[in-house]
Design a protein around this nucleic acid. Sequence first.
DNA 1: GGCGATGTTTCCCC
DNA 2: AGGGGAAACATCGC
Length: 292
Amino acid sequence: MPELPEVETIARQLRGLVTGRVIGAFRSHWGRLTEPVPPRHFARRLVDRRIEGVRRRGKLVLFDLDGGDVLVVSLRMTGQLLFREAEAPPDLRVRGVIAFTDRSEVRFVDTRKFGRMAIVDGREIGADGTARSAAGARAHGPLHATSGIEPLSRAFTTRWLGDFLHRRGRSAIKVLLLDPRGIAGIGNIYDCEALWRARIHPTRLAGSLTTAEAARLHEAIGWVLRKGIRLGGASRRDYLDARGRAGRMQREFQVYAQADRPCPRCGRAIVRSVQGGRATFHCPRCQTVRVP
DNA sequence: GGCGATGTTTCCCC
DNA sequence: AGGGGAAACATCGC
């Protein structure tokens, strides 16, 4: 559910809500939430720490703590971080709770239990959230997938993307964009939307893209991600932001989940297919398979 | 009740 | 290297 714009929305909200608060207690309601670290050890490292800030890295939420530790939260498919004031009514499927000394709390709600938390030494993480060493990477454990470039950073240039497409030339572009080791934060929704905007067929090999197509793709990735952030992310089913509210991006999908509906650009019916085990949506007229 | 699908990531086999 | 499939897990819709 949460991709870069959704996680960015949550991180920005939490930054305003919890910065300066002091953790009074941590409770795990699901044994595997903090594995391989036992919840008791986890709690010991969090209690009495002050939240200095909240950041996003890829699809991870990072809480910077005083003393230098960083609490890393991976929401995976269905994770939510809900801020609740003291005495708020209970929520369903709460897997973990960060309780502050003023009795407000952040609740980690996660239907499918794929989400995880970890605590890493901040010295092992660069200012951009990337692990500085193999040891740092290991410290993230299952959370360290995010090592790719940030697509909204200045480093993500058209030239960088062109080189990347050349290096990974044998990969299908749709699948390549989903790999967080290359570019961090793009999920299925923004992948489909960016390829449609750039008029590139999802099965095209990365190495077959022309310079003009690579430039369009670079623009499209930034455009769809920024639009997603501006609209507070996309919501489906029970996905909510840190304030418990839905985003508005789901109303703006041009192709994602729009099978059989007319392409907003040319009117041809949008096609749903499966690629790399993921549902893919594209316009068979606008997004041509043939290399120009 | 069964089957297939769901926004993510990792892992294993070919 | 890359593709495909499965797995982690729960719920929803047909």
